[in-house]
Every structure is written in structure tokens, then in C-alpha cells.
Design a protein around this nucleic acid. Structure first.
Lengths: 335, 335
DNA sequence: CTGTTAGCGCGTTCAC
DNA sequence: GTGAACGCGCTAACAG
């Protein structure tokens, strides 16, 4: 507990506290010889400046916050990976907060960060997002803020996403090329930016191929996996069930596989599936699964880089970066 | 940036700073009426105490650190989930650090935490762990420290794990009951506590069933997935290939499935696989996969709870909690 | 019941 | 080139 501080060093060196401080900060007004003496003792005693005293004095915390809806999600874990690596590079620390898709928690968390605890915030929105006053509050505090993946379009802030509209379009077009005509979309909430865009891509692709959009083929999924599963199973039990499925997140693809297995519907012979998926696992679900892989790690890195730039420049950025996803077709290796 | 502070409140209320402070901290020596007035203005101005000033004064940071080897790993994401929920419950903040299985990074990170930045540390060790001086250093600082999953046995500290020995034993015994006689073990490094214990369980089960241990059926895997895959493929290409596989982590099971698919070896007809796995995904890899599911969320919660107890009591605990894993057998639903 | 004072550890004037 | 003094914002001890 009793850690060495400047006072302790000053005492042992017969110097004043401020001299020691300057020496350690390599001030030009200190003799090289003195610097050496100070540095030597500091090393010997393993001196480390108290981060909170320093933060108080410099009004800088060397800490950023990452707010995400959930963590048991490959996209977010990869993104955190990227964020952490950039943060470490800048000598920054990373606080993590989970909203569990709960709007109330999201509000609470943003309020925790209004008091200078962090120098900047990286954020991916939860669904159930009706009001957004808490985001405007953050913005008013002039706290650098970068959205990634699930962004809030209305706010002047930096945003980093993947090409969700384009991916949704390509995914749907791919199924159409495969001969599918009754393509279902397992959709995530429309109040999420990514949900909306993926849906728009889906719709546009159908339109461009003169296939009418059927409302009953669009399944509005939520974070309740059991309900999702029930909906999907119901969908596959219909007489006029879809011949193609565009799943907007990996979990929904997994649910689909399970439902089809239980109903003895062979994939991909009778139903073709394409899904967003970011780690190898999905590829092994069924070697025939076509996946759309997002550059999650890159997104994390880029979002963090933009944040640090904003912190350094003390201004709020208003970029909109869109990174490309990759559509990976796999050959079925049989069973 | 300019945030309201006690001084500001005191000024507007014609009170002294300390009175305002006491009022907000609900001190018994302040009149209810004054408390109300203070609280009212504080609410109106959205006053929030500066966390760093408070930390400096109270020598408490309300922050803990979580150090883990990697995050793209279902066990750790679930554990973080548990940790975060308990931390929030205690009004604590969570800093996250990734070692990427790199010993040097682990040392650097532990050094970052020696200066009072955090009130306690939750840690799961990286492999390549030869020396452990950095852990003794942490311990000497009297910083509450709780290991989870990958623990360091030699240190007097709290440790929370699953029943890895028992799980390894049961997994192997299960394969033996299924008729397997040539059982391979895809092992993680022995310098990890969990690797050692799972291996011991494997060996003991073989011994108890009079099956000789064959060194060439024990594959020493690392965090290099490509090499792991090469080893596994080589294993399955042998004429006398194993009829059962005990994978010590989920990724190795996935590698096995891929190798078998490429070599046209049917699972589970010719090779039976059992693996540690903590999220639903693995179950859908192949419905026949038997999994050992660890209570990762519970481990995170329990580790965090013990840590907070230690922080509160200002003493170092020396528990050793072992939580039970669950072996889940699934029926093959065919293909 | 309220105010004055001191100091947590550090960095930054400003004298000397 | 060095040191004394102040303040970042807050809490705690002591007066009154």
C-alpha cells in the first residue's frame, strides 16, 4: 500500500519535490547529472507516479471507455481486441461496460462517464433505443465519442461501420443467383443502424431482380433467442417455406441449422443459408454455409485510432468510415 | 470540460465547501434542511464528484483490473460477463488487459497496476510462463488478487477454477464406455494449471481401465492454430489413427472436425469426439459432439465476489474454489 | 450545526 | 539550476 512518491525520493536525494518532478519529466532546466541521480533512485525504488494525482492535476485520465451491448459475440470480442491493441500503443487504459441491450443500463453508464473518468468513449448502441438524450448529453460535455458498428446517425460524431447495406444486397443477390426465389430475412431490430441497412440491402436486391418483397418472409428477431428459435421453426414448418435464408447475425444462422436439423430439412439442398459471421466457428457449422465476414478487428483499431486523434486534437471528429466485409463462399464437402 | 464542482455549489449556496461535501455524503452533522438545499442544486446542475480527486483522497480507485490471455474465447467472454455484473453491483469499474499469451506483455501489465490504479486484480495466466516474479511482486504490494481458470498454484491467493481433473477423467471414461480404445488427447500446454489437470484426468482414466498411455496419442497443442491443425491432420492420417478424441479446448475440436471432413472420416461413426466448449455453437458443429461445459459465468461472478470481499476486508484470501462442469451428451440427429 | 484548515501526490508557476 | 508555494477537487480533523 505504502508506495514511494516524489516526497520520498526528494528526501533521500536531498532535493526538493519539484526538482525531482522536473527531473523525471526530463525538464530542460535540470542538470543532466541531477537527472541521472534522480532517475537512478527512482528505478531502484521502482517509483511509479500516482495515476490519480496526475489525472487530477493534468485533467487527463489516460483512460477510455468501451460501451457495447454484449460480449459473448464474436464481432465485439474481435473489435475489443483491436481497440485494446491501439490503446496500449498509446499508453491508454480501457474500461469496459456492457449494456446487455438494456436502454436503461446504457443511460446509467453514459452518466457514469460524464465526470472526467475517461478521455474518450467508444460506443456501439443497444437496441430498444427510443430516446437518445443521453447521447446528446455526452456530446455536450465535449467528450470525444466514436461510434462503431451500431451507430447513432443523427449525432455529429465519428462513426465506423462496415458496408452493411452493400453486404445485405450482395448476400441476397448471391442467394438469388443460386436459384432461390423465396428468400427469408432473419432481421435484427430496425432501430439498430446495422439492422436497417442490412434490411434495405435485402429489399433492394429483391427489387432489382423483380422479386416481390413478402412481409411474411421477414422475421423480426430480438435478443430473445428462444423466441427467435420459435419464429424460425414456425417459418420452416410452413408448406411454402423459404428456399433461401439471409441471417443478419450468426446466432440466427445457428438457430436455423438447429431448426432444420429437427425438421429433417437438408441444408443446402433444400434451403440455402447465408449469414454474417466473424470467426471460424460458423464455417464449420456446415461447410456449405456462405458467410459475410466483417473486418471486426480492423474496425476496433480504426475506431480507436480516430478516437485518439480526436483526444489529441481536442476536437470532435465527424468522419464516417465504412469498411468492406468479405463474402466467403464455401464448397460443400458433403457430410 | 468545465464541470461543476464543490466550490461552485458552495459559492451559489453561500456555504462552505466542506459543508456541501458533508451534505452530499449524508453526514449526520448537517441539518436536513441544508442537505435538501444542497442536494437540490447538485441535481439541478448535474453535479458529479470528480473520481480522481476522490481516489486520491481516499486511496481507493473503485476500479479493478481483469487480465486475460485472449478475448476471442467463449470461456473468457462469459467470465467477463459475470465479473462485470458483480463489479457494477458494487459500483466498481472494470479495466481490461489482454496478454495475448505473451509472457512479456503479462509482466508489463502487472507492472502498470502496481501504482494504485486499481483496488484489486482478477487474473488468468498466459502460457509460456516460466518465471513468476511479477506475480510475487503484485502479492507483495498487498494488492488483492484472485486467479481464475488458469491459476498460479504456488502463491497464497484466492483461486477459482472448474473441476478440470475430474472433467478430464469423466471425458476420457465416457469415450472408453463408448467403446473407444485408442483415445488421443489434444492437450494445451502443461505449464497451464488447467492443461496439467485435464491431462492428469485423462491419464488416470486410462490407467483405471487398464489402457496403456501412448505418448504418440498425446498431441501438445499451442496457440498456433495452423500448427495444431497440421498435427491433428497428421494424427488422423495415420494407419492406426485414434478412435476417440478428447479435445481440451473448443478450437481443437473445431480443427478436428475440419481435418476429418477433409479426410472423409465420419464423426462419430469412426471417431468419437468430446471437448470442452462453453457456448451453444459447438453443439451445432455436429449434433453428436459431447461437450463439457464449464460454468464460466459463475466463475467470473464468484471470482469477482471473492475479490470484493478481500478488498472490503483488506486482507488477502487464500481460498480454492472448484466449480463443477457439466458433461452434455447429445444424440446424433443424423446428417 | 457550520466553517476553517490541512493534505492526498503531482506539475507548474515564479522567485532566488 | 533549484526550491517554495499554489492548486487540481475532494474529504477528514478540528474548532467554534
Amino acid at each position: 500500500m505504502k508506495s514511494v512518491n516524489l516526497k520520498e525520493l526528494a528526501l533521500q536525494l536531498n532535493l526538493s519535490i519539484s526538482t525531482v518532478s522536473k527531473a523525471l519529466n526530463d525538464s530542460y532546466e535540470i542538470t543532466p547529472e541531477t537527472k541521472r541521480r534522480v532517475q537512478e533512485l527512482a528505478d531502484a525504488l521502482h517509483y511509479q507516479p500516482n495515476p490519480y494525482a496526475r489525472s487530477l492535476r493534468k485533467q487527463k485520465s489516460k483512460t477510455i471507455a468501451v460501451i457495447i451491448p454484449e460480449i459473448a459475440n464474436n464481432f465485439f470480442t474481435l473489435a475489443i481486441n483491436g481497440i485494446e491493441s491501439i490503446a496500449r500503443q498509446h499508453g491508454y487504459h480501457v474500461l469496459i461496460y456492457l449494456t446487455h441491450e438494456d436502454y436503461q443500463k446504457e443511460v446509467e453508464i453514459t452518466q457514469l462517464l460524464q465526470n472526467g473518468r475517461v478521455d474518450g468513449v467508444l460506443m456501439s448502441l443497444s437496441s430498444n433505443n427510443n430516446e437518445n438524450e443521453h447521447l446528446y448529453d455526452l456530446h455536450k460535455k465535449m467528450l470525444p465519442l466514436v461510434f462503431f458498428d451500431r451507430v447513432f446517425e443523427d449525432l455529429e460524431a465519428a462513426k465506423v461501420t462496415t458496408d452493411d447495406y452493400e453486404s445485405g444486397y450482395k448476400a441476397t443477390a448471391h442467394l438469388i443467383e443460386q436459384g432461390c426465389r423465396r428468400i427469408a430475412h432473419l432481421a435484427i431490430p430496425k432501430d439498430l443502424s446495422i439492422g436497417k441497412k442490412r434490411m434495405q440491402g435485402y429489399m433492394q436486391a429483391l427489387n432489382d431482380h423483380q422479386i416481390p418483397v413478402q412481409e411474411d418472409l421477414i422475421i423480426a428477431c430480438t435478443d430473445n433467442q428462444q423466441m427467435n428459435y420459435a419464429f424460425i421453426r414456425e417459418l420452416m414448418e410452413r408448406k411454402d417455406r423459404p428456399d433461401g435464408i439471409f441471417a443478419s447475425v450468426e446466432k440466427l444462422a445457428i438457430n436455423t441449422y438447429q431448426a432444420c436439423a429437427e425438421l429433417h430439412i437438408p441444408i443446402p439442398e433444400e434451403v440455402k443459408v447465408i449469414s454474417f459471421a466473424n470467426l471460424e466457428t460458423a464455417a464449420f457449422l456446415n461447410p456449405s454455409l456462405t458467410t459475410i465476414t466483417q473486418p471486426a478487428f480492423e474496425i476496433g483499431k480504426q475506431a480507436a485510432s480516430i478516437l485518439f486523434e480526436a483526444i489529441k486534437m481536442k476536437n470532435i471528429k465527424n468522419h464516417y468510415s465504412i469498411l468492406k466485409s468479405v463474402l466467403i463462399k464455401r464448397k460443400s464437402t458433403g457430410c
